[in-house]
């Protein structure tokens, strides 16, 4: 069955924006999605992965190497020829073990031929694509640590079981979770680039529309996809244009100053907030095909980039989005 088209998703504007920004600039460092089950989080992420144009991969390479990366591949794939493959989307199951995530000694090969061969894990499979983790707040901390480390460095280093392997693992990390069932430690939250809050659409008409589209998709996924192909195509163009523009997009000093001011006004510790805010503004401006980054771009993405970094009194119930909006209203009125 064909995937649900990205453009056919009803509502979820913030989530879609965050995903597009991450697609334009994967170095943004992952997206954390707060929200209930059944809000279409994984549908949106899967849809984006399916929308992106196929990538060139060395044939049979278990590390998903691009043609220009094969020289450093631990699997020695440089002899094979490049083939087209769709952008990988890896769904990390709750309760996955370190072995499955990192990769481990290939027992089969070790037993059969006595060779010491590394069996790549989910991180290698997600290379150049998306790694989606549902209920990341219920994942063990040491695994979350490890994932964020690899996501930030773009490289998976394995030193265990007598193996010493390093391979590229660049992916967009998408974590989701419902804060009512437990929260991520603030240190971990801070390492996510963007965060979004999703809700299910509440208006009856929107919900009816969702049911209608899902039923149509279930009945005839190919035909349904064809009906949305044009809109999907224009989103794809927007991403491609954004990626081209990103390299030449500069951030004027005035906008940098705005970013610093906003961060100190809402009380964001550390540099990471400011840097991500700047990156996200650049990517957003590139998506919008602007010539340069302007204050409106910055303000538009500020909640995405800062919401999860606010120094938070756990017992304070007022939402962080509201605090950012208040600060924006005060600073830039």
């Amino acid at each position: 069955m064909a995937r649900f088209p990205f453009s056919a998703i009803v509502g979820q504007d913030e989530m879609k924006l965050a995903l597009l920004i991450a697609a334009v600039d994967p170095a943004i460092g992952g997206v954390m999605v707060f929200g209930d089950r059944g809000t279409g989080k994984s549908t949106a992420a899967r849809a984006l992965a399916a929308l992106l144009p196929p990538i060139m991969v060395m044939e049979g390479c278990r590390f998903g190497c691009a043609p220009d990366e094969s020289s450093a591949c631990p699997g020695q794939c440089s002899a094979s020829k490049p083939v087209k493959r769709s952008v990988p989307f890896v769904d990390l199951p709750l309760g996955a073990t370190e072995d499955r995530v990192l990769g481990s000694l290939d027992l089969e090969r070790a037993l059969r031929t006595g060779e010491k061969v590394f069996e790549p894990g989910l991180l290698a499979r997600a290379h150049r694509g998306f790694l989606y983790i549902d209920e990341i707040n219920l994942l063990e901390d040491h695994l979350v640590d490890l994932l964020l480390d690899v996501a930030a460095s773009g490289e998976n280093v394995v030193e265990r079981e007598g193996l010493s392997v390093r391979h590229r693992a660049r992916f967009v990390l998408i974590g989701s979770g419902n804060p009512e069932e437990g929260e991520l430690r603030p240190q971990l939250l801070d390492r996510f680039g963007l965060s979004v809050e999703v809700r299910t659409p509440r208006a009856i008409d929107d919900r009816v529309e969702i049911m209608r589209r899902c039923a149509a998709h279930d009945a005839d996924s190919i035909g349904f996809g064809a009906r949305w192909a044009e809109e999907d195509g224009s989103i794809l163009q927007q991403i491609a244009r954004g990626q081209r523009k990103l390299a030449r997009m500069d951030v004027p000093d005035a906008v940098l100053l705005d970013a610093a001011q906003l961060c100190s006004a809402v009380g964001v510790d550390g540099l990471r907030g400011e840097l991500t805010l700047m990156r996200a503004s650049r990517a957003y401006a590139a998506l919008k095909a602007a010539k340069t980054v302007r204050r409106e771009h910055l303000l538009h993405v500020a909640p995405l980039a800062l919401r999860h970094r606010l120094r938070r009194d756990v017992l304070d119930e007022s939402g962080s989005t509201a605090r950012i909006e208040r600060a924006i209203a005060e600073q830039f009125a």
């Binding site: 059944g38 919900r207 009816v208 969702i210």
Partner: peptide, 23 residues
């Protein structure tokens, strides 16, 4: 579809999954 969505709303069922399953 509208009737189902209205009932779900009245019962406070916010997730989309039950609604799709109900349909």
């Amino acid at each position: 579809l509208k009737a189902l969505a209205t009932i779900a709303e009245a019962l406070g069922v916010t997730s989309m999954r039950p609604l799709l399953q109900a349909a």
